[in-house]
Simulated assay, not measured.
Amino acid sequence: MTAQPVKKTAPAKKAEATGEPNSIDYKGHCFYIHSERKLPLDVLEAIEDDRGELAIIRSIVGPTQWKVFKSTEPSIEDFEEFSTLVTEAAGFGDSGN
């Protein structure tokens, strides 16, 4: 079975074309997410090392924004919602949750 290409959202395509990050709003906070090609190398390492979705999302948003997310006292369900927003903004499509 061949892998299906990920359909990128319009904002993700625009971010990739312009080099500017997307912004997402989550619980009253604005998060800036770069397109997949502008993400830190830590994201690729987390994927390659199969460290799991938590490590991947934490790498995508970076340490400062991760602290902001954690300040919302998220539940696992909240993380699933946040991870979907983040991966879609980065151009990865649905996170699978």
Rank of each mutant, 00 (worst) to 15 (best):
M1Y: 14
M1R: 13
A3M: 06
A3E: 07
P5G: 10
P5T: 13
K7D: 14
K7F: 13
K8L: 15
P11R: 12
A12Y: 04
K13D: 10
K14S: 07
T18M: 00
G19H: 07
G19T: 06
P21C: 09
P21V: 07
N22M: 03
N22L: 03
N22F: 00
D25K: 10
Y26S: 04
Y26F: 13
G28K: 14
H29S: 06
H29C: 01
C30D: 15
Y32D: 09
Y32T: 15
Y32N: 15
I33M: 04
I33V: 15
H34M: 13
E36W: 08
R37N: 15
K38C: 08
L39S: 02
P40Y: 03
L41P: 02
D42N: 07
D42R: 11
L44N: 07
E45N: 04
A46Q: 02
I47C: 10
D49Y: 06
D50N: 11
L54H: 11
L54W: 08
L54D: 11
A55P: 00
A55I: 00
I56T: 11
I57K: 04
I57F: 01
I60N: 00
V61D: 01
G62I: 06
Q65R: 05
W66I: 00
K67T: 08
K67E: 12
K67Q: 12
K70G: 00
E73Y: 08
S75D: 14
I76E: 09
I76H: 10
F79D: 06
E80M: 14
E80Y: 12
E81Q: 13
F82G: 09
S83C: 08
S83K: 05
T84E: 14
L85E: 06
L85H: 05
V86R: 08
V86H: 09
A89F: 05
A89R: 01
G91M: 03
G91A: 05
G91W: 03
F92P: 00
F92I: 04
G93S: 08
D94F: 01
G96A: 07
